[in-house]
Write a protein that binds this DNA or RNA. Structure first.
Lengths: 197, 197, 197, 197
DNA sequence: GATGAATGAGCCTTCATTCAT
DNA sequence: AATGAATGAAGGCTCATTCAT
């Protein structure tokens, strides 16, 4: 019998190496050779486990999204079910989780965002992810605002999240999580205080 | 006797072809061969005019930024110098100019944003551009708000601009310019009405 | 305690899978991975039983030849020892045995024929086989014709057998066994009726 | 202006190198690297001129067939239009042209024959070629025999041509052209002398 | 006996760039 | 100014084989 349980070790190992490579040289420079070297395995193994480079990239994107989702769910699970405002801030906070704002993850996100435009599989993944943020926010906002307004504010918050994140990705000092949350909290409170602009 | 004035014709022609190629197949698929084919010239000519592919990409990025700047300047030039709020909205409007929100420009922007992370020249270009938006907004906001608050709101508006733009880039229907501006106008007014949240 | 008698099961199983693979995707596409998948075993096992891919191919070729020989011998064994003409037709008939003209065997033959040109082991096997057909035919023809003529006619029949077989291999409808035998029978009779052209 | 007329030089040069490589190491061993090395050019050039390895193989097969066709046509052009028997022998002779029976061409033919089984493009080429030999023979035989018999004999001759050629390909001494033609001439004459077997 | 994880060589192809014309 | 022939490096992928279990 061969070594067993290897997939459980190799797959995360290669996903990690992929993000690390993208962080260092960008998606364009993240060759199979470089990624496998970083993972300390041979290049052929990527085919063995992911059926090709594309499979690895797809899994990497899924992994990043899974982590994001996990961070949000964790925060929601420890937040009062009835405190909508707290839940919204929990969602926002999850999007600025320490893991998500690391250079490695930030660059990986951005690389995939650009790449997804011309790759149907990645595009769909990305799209689902974007809808989810909006949907999560809308559910909570509907408890506080009329439906139309809830949709409007959800889009505003989502835009702020992505915009702050995008601008932070470009900044060598990275994302200032505290400032990010303060900006969005401020936005939210102004929307709740006086819902008619 | 060589044809004169060819640079003035060839360079924009190739920049245009580059954006068109990025729109269709992404930056990764935009080979010199494809770009030159789209421009109806030979591949070798890119070296002739831009000293290599990198020169072409750099010029393309500069071109996109020039167009953005032009759109903003044009709007500012026809706006009352003393109406700060109108000037802020002019800046925002310039960022959602019809040209800027076209699929071609949107994808080119995003591709470069990702690429710039690992290319010092493009990175600097991108950074200057980001600072400029912030700076423009801050100058006007300082006429309406205390300095600290002006900086805070400028960052909020910049984040909304980029966030809406980023999310729109992913959306097959493109960016809804009207909704974008309404969201930002709403944000701005709430900040001005009662500057202390 | 190891399972006993496995070689007797595995070897024909893998030879069969090899022919099946060659039938479907050609010798060039018949990878160890594909063959073993078809046989429902792991790839490594081929080395175990045949010492490598080459050993498997060699055994496959031997197997095809053994089957051909068996078919001819069977027919000869039930044919009157003294009826030379009947024995020649028995040899011919054996070469167009239902098994031999199946797509799987036909393509395997042809693949090996081409491959043998650059593989000494397979070449020798193939050569022996070719000589055997000629030799069998000559032995019988010598009972009916002068030696020189017997050799001449044997070569003619062998050429017809291989030529009909080769052209049939290319034909999507396969080999028309009845027509094949009729053509060769006609050739033989004309040679016997009047041996001096 | 670049060097012109290169295609007319490079294409035959690469086709020649391909046959030479197949002759030496077989189709399986005829890598792009080997072929281009033999031609004294870089590997990339094959893409430039043939759009890939497959294009080169296709052109090589077409080239071999063109040569065969040329040899037959040349012989027919200098043969009495009304001497059907002579025309048949001219066709046969063309198939055993010195060029066609060279080791290089013989192995190339055989390699393609096997390969064509799993390549639609090559298969069609091969099929057309096979039909042409038969058709040429039948046209002439119909001047000498009743239609059904003409078809029967045409198939016999075609089988002899291919069979002799195939057996010769396996023979280290190559094809004995004189014996080949004598065998077929003998077959033809017996068929004409007494058309009812 | 049998597996499948793992390797490393080799293959075809793409690509930016150079250069003679 | 402009072409396209030509190159060489690099990329992703396939594959036969080895080996620990």
């Amino acid at each position: 019998m061969p070594k067993v349980g290897m997939p459980a070790i190799r797959r995360p190992q290669l996903v990690e190496a992929t993000m690390s490579a993208i962080d260092e040289v960008g998606l364009a420079g993240a060759s199979v050779a470089l990624i496998s070297r970083k993972a300390g395995v041979s290049a052929g193994i990527i085919n063995h486990y992911f059926g090709g480079k594309h499979g690895l990239l797809e899994e990497t994107m899924r992994s990043v999204m899974r982590e994001l989702s996990k961070g949000v769910q964790l925060r929601l699970s420890i937040t009062d079910q009835n405190d909508a405002k707290a839940r919204i801030l929990a969602i926002v906070d999850g999007n600025f989780d320490g893991n998500q704002v690391s250079s490695k993850v930030t660059k990986t996100w951005l690389a995939f965002w650009s790449h997804a435009m011309h790759d149907p599989t990645l595009f769909r993944l990305q799209h689902v992810n974007e809808r989810r943020l909006l949907s999560h926010l809308r559910v909570e906002l509907k408890k506080l605002l009329p439906p139309e307004r809830a949709q409007f504010v959800a889009q505003g918050i989502a835009a702020l999240v992505d915009g702050i994140w995008l601008r932070g990705a470009l900044n060598p000092q990275g994302i200032d999580t505290r400032a990010a949350i303060k900006t969005i909290e401020d936005y939210l409170e102004r929307q709740l205080h006086d819902s008619q602009p």
